[in-house]
Design a protein around this nucleic acid. Structure first.
Lengths: 192, 192
DNA sequence: GTCTATACGGCGATAGAC
DNA sequence: GTCTATCGCCGTATAGAC
């Protein structure tokens, strides 16, 4: 297999595991096993664990903005404002299908004290903010509200709250209210 | 010094450091230095690092609900609904003064895959949800919106976004919009 | 391009003195 | 109640073969 394909494969594996157990809590060995390669090869290919995480972060942000740009392209300024917002919400929820993507993002957002990763995370968050504000023409209040909902979803994902969806009616209410669309994806993601 | 006082002191120190670098990213030695004691003593007093983190989590949740109950007590059902919500928001922002409290909470919320800490985090989150829903009489939608705003604040805290408050006008707009009241506390907290 | 073997450092936890 | 000394493990990274 070519290095480039292997690289993409390892990034996907890393995203999945980083999403589960965070940057510090994940070992390069876990990632290697997930990707079906040896631990030293993972390090060799990316230089350091830190650089691998940065690659995952970059991938996640690229996918996120890609999805959002698609929504914008499909819309083409014709429809109503509320409908557009709803479709951004749906696009976000759909990203839950890509294992570890939003979870890795969220973990990155809590690494602000790390000089390298922290800076990358702030820049990435701002890129999303800038997109919604300028390209999608949200007002500052609209962006804030949209991002807040997103962070609540990410938090629910992080707590694995969906694991208790059936056993606790309060959890059911919480998730049904917090999510803009149906909850199946989150439950899937939570249990994967 | 008595063990009980030392215990409280170490919990405070641990909250500060865990808030900065998370559960896995924090060493018991860092906590010990912050508390001005030896590393083995920290472990000795709490048994394990995990139990120490659980103590910090418990402390944070207790303080949070304490603050909220005060708001409710002061209000006594007299004022308007919106005003009460605003005061809950202010109470939340005030907790940013207690170093590492909200940040440690947020880190706990991303540890859902940990069998022990994850369960505690889910229960804690639900306790807050239950309080707002039943004691404070929020509707499910009101709770969801309130929590979403809180999670956005926590995320901004985690990214240390406030460090760029002066240098980037977009950051300024983001923080000014995302925070229900004035931003000074967060900036303080972000730079402490 | 990918592996095996291994060096090296760091961290949680224990032992035991004072 | 608190410290010093230290063990043992684990994880990243390197060396080098195939």
């Amino acid at each position: 297999m070519k290095a480039e394909d292997r690289r993409a494969l390892i990034i996907d594996a890393a995203m999945a595991v980083f999403g589960d157990t965070g940057y510090v809590g994940t070992t390069t060995d876990q990632i290697a096993r997930e990707a079906g390669v040896s631990q030293p090869y993972v390090v060799r290919m990316f230089g350091t664990k830190e650089k691998l995480f940065l690659a995952v972060l970059d991938r996640a942000l690229t996918r996120l903005l890609e999805s959002f740009r698609e929504v914008l392209a499909d819309d083409a300024g014709g429809g109503e404002r509320d409908e557009l917002h709803r479709r951004f919400g749906t696009a976000y929820i759909d990203l839950l299908r890509e294992r570890g993507l939003l979870a890795s993002l969220m973990h990155a957002f809590l690494l602000g004290t790390d000089p390298i990763i922290g800076k990358a995370a702030r820049c990435g968050f701002l890129d999303v903010y800038r997109f919604l504000r300028t390209e999608a023409d949200f007002t500052a209040e609209e962006v804030s509200e949209f991002l807040a909902g997103g962070m609540l979803i990410n938090t629910m994902l992080g707590t694995r709250m969906a694991d208790d969806y059936d056993s606790d009616p309060l959890v059911r209410e919480l998730l049904d209210t917090a999510l803009p669309t149906k909850v199946e994806h989150l439950i899937e993601a939570g249990r994967a």
